[in-house]
């Protein structure tokens, strides 16, 4: 397809979004990420049955924690799409980049500088 998407998106591969825990999201922000986007399979299509559903619940919990500590829960988003939807992935990457750009940089980085 040779689709392009913003170069600032760093991809971390996991076997299933069910592998993603709240602490991984928190660590991303501690390490300076401006936003985290979880991209899981379509609901009902999980190879492990409920991995993506669990991930969504964890994203909701992470949002609460990030709101509490002032980073902002809006910086974490979960999307569901199939591995055949390259176009949609590129579009999500663009959307997410735009959204985070509007929110500004991770407040931890601004405090350091």
């Amino acid at each position: 397809m040779r689709l392009s998407y913003p170069a600032n998106v760093k991809i971390v591969k996991v076997p299933c979004t069910g592998r993603v825990d709240v602490i991984h999201v928190m660590k991303a922000f501690e390490n300076g990420a401006d936003g985290v986007c979880l991209v899981g399979c379509l609901e009902g299509d999980c190879h492990f049955l409920v991995g993506n559903l669990r991930a969504r619940k964890r994203v909701e919990y992470a949002k609460q924690l990030l709101d509490e500590c002032g980073i902002g829960g809006d910086r974490v988003v979960m999307y569901n799409l199939s591995s055949a939807e390259g176009q949609k992935f590129a579009q999500i990457a663009r959307e997410m980049t735009e959204k985070i750009r509007e929110l500004g940089p991770n407040p931890v980085k601004s405090a350091k500088s």
């Binding site: 922000f29 501690e30 500590c69 002032g70 931890v108």
Partner: peptide
């Protein structure tokens, strides 16, 4: 992690 983020901010 939450405390570190809050205090760093």
């Amino acid at each position: 992690s939450e405390i570190r983020l809050f205090r760093a901010k």
